[in-house]
Simulated assay, not measured.
Amino acid sequence: MTKPFIVCYMMTTIDGRIECAMLEKLKGGDAYESIITDELRTPSTLVGRVTAELEMATGKFKPTATPEPLGKQGFSKKVDAVHGYDIIVDTKGTLLWDKENEKPYLIITGEQVSKEYLAYLDSKNISWIACGEKTINLAKAVEILANEFKIDRLAVVGGTAINTAFLEAGLLDEISILIGPGIDGRKGFSPLFDGRATDKDPIQLKLKDVKKYDDGAVLISYTV
């Protein structure tokens, strides 16, 4: 299968929590963005719906009629992104977007997405991919990213559900974690990965590199 080289990249506390408001209070965050471009060389990044709704989207899409699903696989490429895409996984097509963004948006949905929502994306000149009858076929989606959108390196940057989905699908090549020098420890906040079946064995990793920063943060990279 043709696909990009895919890195799961997150900043965490030392207990593996990824809640942004807590991480913003820790040292180490200044290096986060530069690591994406300089260390990982992944100009295109991908987030799940929950993260996108909290940090990127401008609201929720409200259909004006009874939704008619697309009902088939398809994609629409609006622009060639020289400096990468901001990719959002939004299975049912629920989020609204500003037309202006530093990098072009690319929305990945399932085939049950409504034609009305895709028309909305078209009106905003936003590229999209639809694949998977009930849930998104991530393997097919990343194949389209490689073949049609010419993405050769991709960073999956959260949250927990999308990180775990890529892990379970066997699509991650590397996991890189920027560990901030602090502990969260609060009950009920999401870790880096979660939701695997309780009868599964651990996924074995191979240490690739460790880099220390003067502010106490550590970047640890593993080959999957």
Rank of each mutant, 00 (worst) to 15 (best):
F166T: 03
C20F: 02
V47C: 08
T135N: 11
T64L: 15
K78E: 11
H83E: 10
L70C: 00
N137D: 15
V113F: 04
G74S: 13
Q204R: 14
Q112S: 11
G170C: 09
K211L: 03
T91M: 01
M11I: 14
W128P: 03
G195A: 07
M10P: 00
E19G: 02
R196G: 04
L54D: 02
T45H: 05
N147G: 08
I177G: 03
G16R: 14
I87M: 02
K115T: 12
L192F: 10
Y85G: 04
Y9V: 02
Y85A: 05
T42D: 02
F5E: 03
E33K: 12
E168Y: 00
A81N: 01
D209P: 00
L145S: 12
I107C: 11
L171N: 04
I107M: 11
I108F: 01
D201L: 15
E133K: 15
G74N: 07
I220G: 05
A169H: 02
T37H: 11
F149I: 08
K140D: 13
G216Y: 06
P4E: 06
D80L: 12
G28M: 05
T66C: 00
K99E: 10
K187V: 13
N147D: 12
T37Y: 12
E168R: 06
G29E: 12
S176T: 11
A31T: 09
W97I: 04
E19P: 00
W97Q: 03
A130N: 05
R49P: 00
I203W: 03
I18E: 03
G74I: 01
T109D: 01
L95M: 14
M11Y: 07
V218P: 02
L145E: 13
S127F: 07
N101R: 11
F166P: 01
D184P: 09
D122T: 04
K72G: 05
S221G: 15
D38T: 15
A165V: 03
M10F: 08
L40P: 13
G59W: 03
Q112V: 00
L23W: 07
A65R: 13
N125D: 15
L219W: 10
K187C: 06
Y85I: 08
N125T: 13
I220Y: 03
K115G: 08
V82P: 00
G84V: 06
D194E: 15
E148S: 06
L205Y: 09
E33Q: 09
Y85K: 06
I126F: 07
M1P: 05
Y213W: 08
K150A: 08
P63G: 07
E102K: 15
T66N: 08
R153W: 08
P191C: 05
V218T: 13
V50I: 08
P191I: 04
D194K: 12
F166E: 02
C8A: 10
K212M: 14
V224P: 04
M56T: 06
C20P: 00
R186C: 11
P202T: 01
G28Y: 06
V113Y: 06
T198M: 13
K150V: 05
A197F: 07
T160P: 05
G16H: 12
